[in-house]
């Protein structure tokens, strides 16, 4: 089982993608999608240097994504307000650094996706020697507030999702 389906969640996602792309539920599409779902992860395994991520708590992930969606919509309107009504010189765009406690590579990938998708912040780089995140903020008003927000609202839930101790039967692979 483990040998042919290294990551069942990825396989299910590939099968669903194939069915949605073809917009039908005929047996032929189930068959082709099943072949894709088995062959795809096997072929892509050498491309995954860190193995497949292990999601410890699904509800925490759902809550995090919901919070991020609300945040994206809110900051979209903030950014469009700044673009329309403020002079470019008055906008305080700055690089800031945030020390991170998160170590899991999958967690860092998720954090960078969430931060970069939110308008107004761009993840620039992770300074590896000090584990600091370099972030560019469109309109910086208070650096302490940004550090607090990233650490409590994004980093803590991601640590909760990815780095919780794995239950003994699963043999956590992340």
């Amino acid at each position: 089982m483990k040998r042919w389906l290294p990551s069942p969640k990825l396989s299910v996602a590939l099968l669903l993608m194939w069915l949605v792309l073809n917009q039908s539920l005929e047996p032929a599409h189930w068959l082709l999608g099943g072949v894709l779902a088995i062959v795809g992860p096997l072929l892509a395994r050498p491309l995954q240097p860190h193995g497949y991520g292990y999601i410890a708590r699904l509800p925490a992930l759902v809550r995090l994504l919901g919070m991020a969606t609300v945040e994206i919509v809110r900051s979209s309107f903030n950014v469009s307000q700044i673009i329309l009504f403020r002079r470019s010189e008055g906008v305080n765009s700055q690089f800031i650094r945030i020390p991170l406690d998160l170590r899991s590579p999958h967690g860092l990938a998720l954090l960078s996706c969430l931060i970069n998708t939110t308008p107004g912040t761009v993840w620039v780089d992770l300074l590896p020697e000090r584990h600091e995140l370099l972030l560019h903020v469109f309109d910086l008003h208070d650096e302490r507030w940004w550090v607090e927000t990233i650490k409590t609202r994004y980093e803590q839930p991601i640590i909760e999702v990815f780095e919780a101790p794995a239950p003994p039967g699963q043999g956590g692979q992340s």
Partner: peptide, 26 residues
């Protein structure tokens, strides 16, 4: 439209990169 207005109107590159982000997401 607002996102690309930001791309055209803002002064430095580091500010301009935030304009298209709202086009892409919202």
């Amino acid at each position: 439209l607002i996102g690309t207005v930001g791309l055209l109107r803002l002064k430095t590159f580091y500010q301009r990169i935030h304009g298209p982000a709202i086009t892409i997401t919202l």
